[in-house]
Design a protein around this nucleic acid. Structure first.
Lengths: 351, 351
DNA sequence: TATTAGCACTCTTTATTGATGAGTGCTAAG
DNA sequence: CTTAGCACTCATCAATAAAGAGTGCTAATA
């Protein structure tokens, strides 16, 4: 059996109707609502075929039919043409045009906007450090025994760690150590700093201090470990309550399942980092790696800095989500973020 | 009519029963469950009195009775004796004993622990800047046109702002400006930096640069404005899905109301900053300033640095929350946080 | 041969009814 | 003052019935 033109049209109509109403679609409803040029009986036959082909599912004997994950996949890949991207692009650009000094605030805003525009739950993860190079390290004296380590990454994300030394280090030595660390570490990707390099650097620092010093071990340990932190990726999310608008979440148990899934930031990180390949990625229903969201779809996009993917953003909603508006919105936001990052956080120096 | 001993005992039994079961309590159930030494008929009469006095509410004619906000208030203020504080204190101390270099991570952890222990929704707001003094400013050169402003507050919270200059400032001048800013601004409370001071400082910076310079205006503007930010208080929350365990949230509409309230960080900030006076504060039901949570109670505590309140933490749950365990947990966590902040973020220098 | 009208049948949804049971308030007796 | 007894109220739950939407098959039609 073949997926002819008429079948595709009927399937498309069913998908549109189901996305809109959230209720199983019957042949008669369909023939009244959409001008398909054939009677309900014919539609009935075609629907029966579509079910056999795996594109439709019957919730029960007399309830009409519902699109399967396979149907949404076909729809997203082959039927859907996304328009309005430039419309959303301009709209988002206008809203985002505020202060963008602080990465954190900027992403929080983006997350809110994404949720508001799509009416789904937005997810954003902040730049990954491991893939980013270190640009500048500075040890700032805070007071006698305290040193603030300021790390500036290639993408101008700043990371601070406050270090509690057991005995003070004089400021001039601190500066020398700063310079040394800069010399040795800048330009390196964080996951490339290995043990032998650490030891080499430690040795050199000892020569500055003219003696072995336990505090240096301490400092190096904190520096390296905080650079290597993988699980500390920041997660921003907004619009959780948007999910409650959908009849599929009329049930407290369903809400709990979704909520506890999204509240666990580890899940979000794993989910968003799953597919790193494409700029735009859509996973539908059971394609998702987590069972808890096997009735959800996820649209994600990357954002980049100097061509390197440094973060991801996206929306999660029921599988019957409105792909035709959600996709261009995600794309438009991702483009905007890319541009703003390039413009506002970009370094002058050629890499 | 007077609130005699027997009435108080009956009320206490009703409150305990209702906190435990979540269902309206009847006279017969009560006489079976608790040994009150009188018959159900007597209890019935007393309950009728308690209703007249405003401590009990009848959901409908034949459904038993439910404690009013006034009843919980009496219970919390006069009936409840909190034990187990030291038990929870030790338990939390053990859990928190991890890396506490980063304030953000530390508070996020605390928030998770609070939600897990209480089984309610936890809320924490991070140190308020306005009330904190500036300890150190450092301008770190990132690259030609970019300068990172690192501000270290008295409580060792660090704040970064990346500044995009239109023309570069040489590093030696940057250092001089850093020194000048330190000299002029450290020790001042942020809300005390006024316009005339700003102008004086600007003048001095100009003299370093030997000329009027539009970029200095820019720098000062960013510096001051980012110091004065009030609405950027960080909010941490966890255990949203805990609320779904309560039968009062069996209704999607109720969940939505709660969720959209808590998702809005502005609400949380306003809520927690409402009462600044007491170390421990409990607001019950309609005592809350927001209608959306008029069926919730809130237990908050402060955390301090050098005796100054710098943040708040607490739990929110249904009015029939288990005060007798939630209160000591909040207290115990607040004590722990206080100690950890004192120990790990405390400066050597006497203020 | 493909399409359509007609019809019996299925199954969910919604409303109705009645029984059950927990609870109250009043009265009168202890 | 306390308590037993009793009529009455009202939410909850289960069973039943009616309505409505949809399917699949068959036979007629273009």
């Amino acid at each position: 059996m073949e997926l002819n033109n008429r079948k595709v049209n009927i399937l498309k109509a069913i998908i549109h109707s189901y996305i809109e109403e959230g209720e199983a679609v019957g042949s008669r409803t369909l023939s009244k609502k959409y001008d398909l040029g054939v009677s309900s009986a014919t539609i009935r036959n075609e629907m029966s075929d579509l079910e056999e082909l795996g594109y439709l599912i019957k919730p029960h004997t007399s309830a009409g039919r519902v699109p399967s994950d396979k149907a949404y996949r076909l729809y997203v890949d082959n039927i859907l043409i996304d328009k309005n991207k430039s419309k959303y692009y301009k709209q988002i650009k206008k809203i985002l045009q505020e202060d963008i000094n602080e990465m954190e605030m900027f992403l929080r805003n983006s997350s809110r906007i994404l949720a508001q525009l799509t009416k789904y739950t937005s997810l954003i993860i902040a730049p990954q450090f491991k893939k980013s190079k270190l640009k500048h390290v500075q040890l700032v004296p805070v007071s006698g025994r305290k040193v603030l380590i300021v790390m500036i990454m290639q993408n101008n994300i700043v990371k601070n760690v406050l270090l509690n030394l057991k005995t003070p280090i004089p400021e001039n030595q601190l500066n020398k150590i700063s310079n040394l660390l800069n010399e040795k570490l800048t330009g390196l990707r964080l996951d490339m700093i290995d043990l032998s390099m650490k030891n080499r650097i430690k040795k050199e620092i000892y020569s500055i201090r003219n003696q072995y010093d336990q505090k240096i071990d301490e400092l190096m340990k904190v520096l390296i470990s905080s650079l290597n932190e993988y699980d500390k990726i920041d997660v921003y999310s907004d619009g959780l309550n948007n999910m409650l608008n959908f009849p599929e979440y009329n049930d407290t148990e369903k809400i709990r399942e979704f909520l506890s899934f999204v509240e666990d930031k580890d899940n979000i990180v794993k989910l968003l980092l799953k597919n790193t390949g494409e700029d735009l990625d859509i996973t539908i229903g059971h394609e998702n790696i987590f069972d808890e969201i096997s009735k959800c779809s996820l649209i994600t996009a990357t954002y980049k800095f100097n061509g390197i993917t440094v973060g991801k953003l996206g929306v999660i909603g029921p599988t019957r989500m409105d792909y035709k508006t959600a996709i261009p919105i995600v794309k438009a936001l991702s483009n905007n973020i890319n541009e703003i990052i390039e413009k506002n956080f970009k370094d002058q120096i050629k890499e």
